[in-house]
Amino acid sequence: MTSKRLAQRSYYGKALADLAKTDDRVVVLDADLAGSTKTGNFASAAPERFIEVGIAEANMIGVAAGLAASGKTAFASTFGVFASGRCWEQIRMAVAYPKLNVKIVATHCGLSVGPDGATHQALEDISLMRSLPNMTVIVPCDAYEAYAATMALAQMEGPAYMRMGRSEFPVVMPEGCEFRIGKATVMREGSDVSIIACGQMVGAALEAAEALSAEGINAEVVNMSTIKPLDSEAVEATVAKTGAVVTVEEHSIIGGLGSAVAEYLSENMPAPLVRVGTRDTFGESGEADELLVKYGLTASDVAAAARNAIKKKR
């Protein structure tokens, strides 16, 4: 892990600008947030294929569906709360059910949105999107993975939701990394406990593993960057090794990564599980780092959860 901090959305913008040059099927829609979501990079590179819809997310999804039904690969972006919530039913009928080639890419997800407060902190978006049939759900762990995932989405046929944060946070993947949809990455091998994380919490998980190793606890860290379809082989493989699991996400423990892993484990290979995430609560205003501390999403919270999971082993 380096100390380099980068914003995922900047690399989403870079990827779109690169796609503007290489893939003329790609069109990009935004709802008056192009400066924040960084779709503005695409607008500069291919203005004729950038569609400003104004503050009208429901219409954005319908227009994207129409473009996709006409052979385009439509990326539609806004903040996570709006992208997943305001137009959920539009996504359901116009995009997910007909399996249209619309990629909903949300920025400013999670608590680390910071001072804007609870209204703007999407903590339910993975849950909302994961429950839709045909929907692929991706949560890249850093800026480099966000770039690679954007490129992978442009190649993929069908609907997808990608979730990114607002703030700059440490990169944990190598620049130029590949992204395979539906494939998890083992970031660190271990035998005592599996820490399965997504988004910026992968960084916290790696930090926690480092701290645990000083206590003689050998934690495996898995970057579950595709939440749906869940890489169940990766879950099985790591749990077979360790026998105890911690999930970590900057999202509610209801319906997100923790739920996805819990569902899989309880049906297929029951194992002690501790979920780290927000606990059925809204966020509030504050600086990103302060909020992560207050809501129990730091490396030390992850380490504590790992000790707890190990204790539950029989």
Binding site: V63, A69, M93, Y97, K99
Partner: peptide, 27 residues
Amino acid sequence: YREVPGVEVTTGSLGQGLSMACGIALA
């Protein structure tokens, strides 16, 4: 959508068809 040949989009939940038609026309 395309279950039957000639059905261009999925509709039924009201108020969405015009948005889809806009996307098709814009394309």
